[in-house]
Computed example of a mutant assay.
Amino acid sequence: MISTAEDCIFCKIVSGEIPADKVGETEHTVAFRDINPQAPTHVLVVPKVHQPDIASLAAAEPEVAVALLQETQRVANDEAGGSYTLLFNTGADSFQTVFHCHGHVLAGFDTLHFPAATN
């Protein structure tokens, strides 16, 4: 099921309705630690506007997509010394479970044990 802004967990985090371990916030984005980390550093960076995926965000609001990428770089520098993997799942078949655009900033793992990072 694709979420709407009314039932979206990330929209609720953005609005403050649901607490999160935030590591940053800008005019256009919120960055917070993943509650089920897949790497020693695992931070989600989400736009404040509700779009289902990165392509939709880039088409609808390119300036917000740029802000999202800039914030991922800041998070990676602060949290991981600038060396990281940035992952956007797009669609249910790619394991996207929350249909609000979000980038996973992953770092601190051995890429030999994280196959998606080796491609």
Rank of each mutant, 00 (worst) to 15 (best):
residue 115 P to L: 01
residue 30 V to Q: 05
residue 79 E to I: 04
residue 81 G to Y: 05
residue 7 D to C: 02
residue 5 A to W: 11
residue 41 T to N: 13
residue 85 T to V: 09
residue 110 D to A: 01
residue 51 Q to Y: 12
residue 83 S to P: 09
residue 19 P to S: 07
residue 38 Q to F: 00
residue 111 T to W: 13
residue 87 L to Y: 04
residue 85 T to S: 13
residue 115 P to D: 00
residue 20 A to G: 07
residue 69 L to E: 12
residue 94 S to N: 14
residue 18 I to Y: 07
residue 88 F to K: 10
residue 78 D to F: 01
residue 81 G to N: 04
residue 113 H to P: 09
residue 94 S to K: 09
residue 50 H to Y: 05
residue 6 E to W: 00
residue 10 F to A: 14
residue 28 H to E: 06
residue 86 L to D: 12
residue 65 A to T: 05
residue 59 A to H: 02
residue 95 F to A: 10
residue 96 Q to I: 09
residue 77 N to H: 02
residue 114 F to I: 10
residue 66 V to K: 09
residue 89 N to R: 02
residue 30 V to G: 04
residue 106 L to P: 04
residue 59 A to M: 06
residue 42 H to P: 05
residue 98 V to I: 07
residue 3 S to W: 11
residue 115 P to S: 01
residue 81 G to C: 04
residue 102 H to V: 13
residue 80 A to Q: 07
residue 86 L to E: 13
residue 66 V to I: 14
residue 1 M to Y: 13
residue 47 P to S: 12
residue 48 K to Q: 14
residue 29 T to F: 07
residue 109 F to V: 03
residue 2 I to Q: 15
residue 106 L to Y: 11
residue 55 A to D: 07
residue 108 G to T: 06
residue 1 M to F: 15
residue 16 G to Q: 01
residue 48 K to W: 08
residue 3 S to T: 08
residue 104 H to M: 13
residue 46 V to P: 08
residue 111 T to M: 03
residue 33 R to F: 03
residue 54 I to H: 08
residue 70 Q to G: 09
residue 109 F to E: 13
residue 84 Y to N: 15
residue 65 A to L: 12
residue 32 F to Y: 01
residue 107 A to H: 09
residue 25 E to S: 03
residue 66 V to L: 15
residue 92 A to G: 14
residue 18 I to E: 11
residue 39 A to W: 02
residue 60 A to Q: 14
residue 67 A to P: 02
residue 117 A to P: 09
residue 106 L to D: 02
residue 14 V to L: 03
residue 119 N to L: 11
residue 55 A to Q: 15
residue 23 V to D: 06
residue 20 A to K: 05
residue 114 F to P: 06
residue 91 G to C: 11
residue 58 A to P: 10
residue 118 T to N: 12
residue 52 P to G: 04
residue 11 C to M: 03
residue 51 Q to V: 15
residue 30 V to L: 05
residue 52 P to C: 12
residue 82 G to D: 02
residue 88 F to Y: 02
residue 71 E to I: 15
residue 97 T to K: 11
residue 99 F to A: 03
residue 49 V to G: 15
residue 17 E to H: 04
residue 46 V to H: 05
residue 117 A to K: 11
residue 74 R to P: 05
